[in-house]
């Protein structure tokens, strides 16, 4: 009898323990959002929201009339991220497919951990490579004086998001039930057809999740783009132009801005917009995933 009571108590304690943890992480997230909102909103006492979002010029320290427009930064962030994804998705899914379907298991056992270790390279080191390696290379092929531009950032972000995309895509491809591949092979499908028509569609939810996580890393990455993209405050028109993303802008200016000024609040507002952007990305991913899974079952 007492033994039973004790077990129940223990069960309840364990439940409570994990419940607290779950709640705690949600609370922290809400707290961050609240702080961001609280610090960002005062900016709009002096700036109109519409102007803030649609003006290309960001010149908060102008002695005549400060201008707070983040359209150039938004476009820079989108441009660099899109470029990174265009490079990283085909390579990432390709490597994942190779590892799960083609490579000898011994090769997979060696390559996959190495790829995962790549994720641990500090972003400042990747940025350094951008300056000394990718930059000069891009300058050479484009004929410009330097190679610190959007494409440089895209290349580096692609490299940084590859480990996530490869690792999670490979997991989901390997998790596709063997019976699907066998059915396809038994119907005289080649290995390539089996991969493209059966395995990748069946693993799509995982691959989309992988891409979203990779994208999340690319959008929010600061140090690398700060070092590699040149940080010009202009509206981006090509990949061979220096750009300043939202993250770099915050990082560059927040250290020097006088506290509790419009400029200070405006930087938090940039952060808020970034937060909302990543939130929307995740939301879309979630909806796509859910739709896809419904269709599955």
């Amino acid at each position: 009898m007492t033994k039973n009571r004790l077990r129940q108590l223990k069960e309840r304690a364990v439940k409570g323990f994990f419940f607290t943890h779950g709640i705690l992480s949600t609370l922290v997230l809400l707290g961050i959002f609240a702080l961001l909102l609280y610090t960002a909103v005062p900016a709009f006492r002096d700036i109109r929201v519409g102007e803030f979002l649609t003006t290309k010029l960001w010149d908060p320290t102008s002695p005549l009339k400060p201008v707070y427009g983040i359209l150039s930064q938004i476009m820079s962030t989108l441009l660099v991220t899109a470029g990174a994804l265009v490079i990283a998705i085909p390579i990432g899914v390709g490597v994942a497919a190779y590892l799960s379907d083609v490579a000898h298991w011994r090769v997979r056992e060696i390559v996959k951990p190495i790829v995962e270790i790549l994720a641990g390279i500090p972003s400042v080191v990747v940025g350094f490579l951008g300056i000394v390696l990718v930059g000069p290379f891009l300058a050479k092929i484009s004929g410009q004086s330097h190679g610190l531009n959007a494409l440089n950032g895209s290349l580096l972000l692609a490299i940084m998001s590859l480990p996530t995309i490869i690792s999670i895509s490979e997991d989901s491809l390997s998790a596709v039930p063997q019976v699907y591949s066998e059915a396809s092979l038994a119907l005289a499908g080649s290995r390539w057809q089996t991969l493209v028509r059966v395995k990748i569609p069946a693993a799509l939810s995982g691959i989309i999740a992988a891409v979203m996580l990779g994208m999340g890393r690319a959008i929010g990455e600061t140090m690398t783009v700060l070092m590699a993209t040149g940080n010009a405050r202009s509206f981006p028109t090509s990949f061979f132009q220096s750009v300043r993303t939202m993250t770099s802008n915050i990082a560059i200016e927040l250290g020097e801005v006088p506290y509790y000024t419009t400029h200070y609040y405006a930087l938090f507002a940039v952060g808020l917009v970034l937060f909302i952007m990543t939130f929307i990305v995740n939301l879309i991913a979630d909806v796509v995933l859910r739709k896809y899974q419904e269709r599955e079952l």
């Binding site: 039930p177 019976v179 699907y180 066998e182 059915a183 396809s184 092979l185 038994a186 119907l187 005289a188 059966v198 569609p201 069946a202 599955e296 079952l297």
Partner: peptide, 16 residues
């Protein structure tokens, strides 16, 4: 395999 078809132990339709 085009000439020799196979049906497996557990029904394994594709998720299509």
């Amino acid at each position: 395999r085009r000439r020799v078809g196979m049906v497996f132990q557990k029904p394994n339709p594709f998720p299509k």
